[in-house]
C-alpha cells in the first residue's frame, strides 16, 4: 500500500514537474529576449553612457522554487553514489534566471543595472539532514536611469 502511494507520488511528481518546468523555461526565455537590451553587469562601475543620471535605485527580485517528488527521489538515489546531481541543475538554473528577470522587472525604465549579486539559500521544510527540496534565489543590483 505504501509502495502504491509512493509510486503515485513519483508519477505525479514526474508528470506535473516536467510540465511546470517546460512552461517555466518558455516564460523565462520569452522574457529574457524582452530584456535583452538592458545592460546587466557585475561590474562596480557603470558603463560609459551619455546623458545625466536621473534616478538611482536598488533593484531586487527573489523567487522560491521547489523541486518535485520525482527529482527529489532521483537526488536521494544519487546521494548513494555521489557525482553530479543533475536532478537539481534545472532547479537552481530556473531560480537564478527567474530572480534576475524579476530584478530587471522591478525597475522599469532603467538604463543599466550594475554590480549584480545573486544570493542562494536553501529552504528546508524541517531541519532534517540536508533535505534541499526548495531554494530561494535573491538577485540585487543598482539600477541607474540616464536621460
Amino acid at each position: 500500500m505504501d509502495f502504491i502511494i509512493f509510486l503515485t507520488l513519483l508519477l505525479l511528481g514526474y508528470g506535473f514537474g516536467t510540465w511546470a518546468e517546460s512552461r517555466h523555461y518558455k516564460s523565462i526565455e520569452k522574457r529574457e529576449i524582452q530584456y535583452q537590451k538592458l545592460p546587466t553587469i557585475a561590474l562596480k562601475h557603470p558603463l560609459p553612457q551619455k546623458g545625466k543620471v536621473v534616478k538611482v535605485k536598488l533593484a531586487s527580485g527573489n523567487v522560491v522554487i521547489s523541486v518535485d517528488y520525482f527529482k527529489r527521489f532521483l537526488a536521494a538515489l544519487r546521494n548513494i553514489f555521489g557525482g553530479r546531481v543533475s536532478a537539481y541543475e534545472t532547479l537552481v538554473d530556473r531560480a537564478r534566471r527567474e530572480a534576475t528577470l524579476r530584478m530587471k522587472e522591478s525597475c522599469p525604465g532603467a538604463t543599466q543595472i550594475i554590480n549584480v549579486r545573486l544570493e542562494t539559500a536553501s529552504i528546508s521544510k524541517n531541519s532534517k539532514k540536508g533535505s534541499v527540496g526548495s531554494i530561494e534565489v535573491f538577485a540585487y543590483g543598482t539600477a541607474i536611469t540616464y536621460r
Binding site: G13, A20, N62, I65, S66, D68, S134
Partner: peptide, 16 residues
C-alpha cells in the same frame, strides 16, 4: 508543491 514542484509563491512573498 513539494510533490509537484514549482514556485512557492507564499514563501517568495514572505521573504520579499
Amino acid at each position: 508543491k513539494n510533490i509537484f514542484g514549482g514556485e512557492l509563491k507564499g514563501y517568495t512573498e514572505l521573504l520579499s
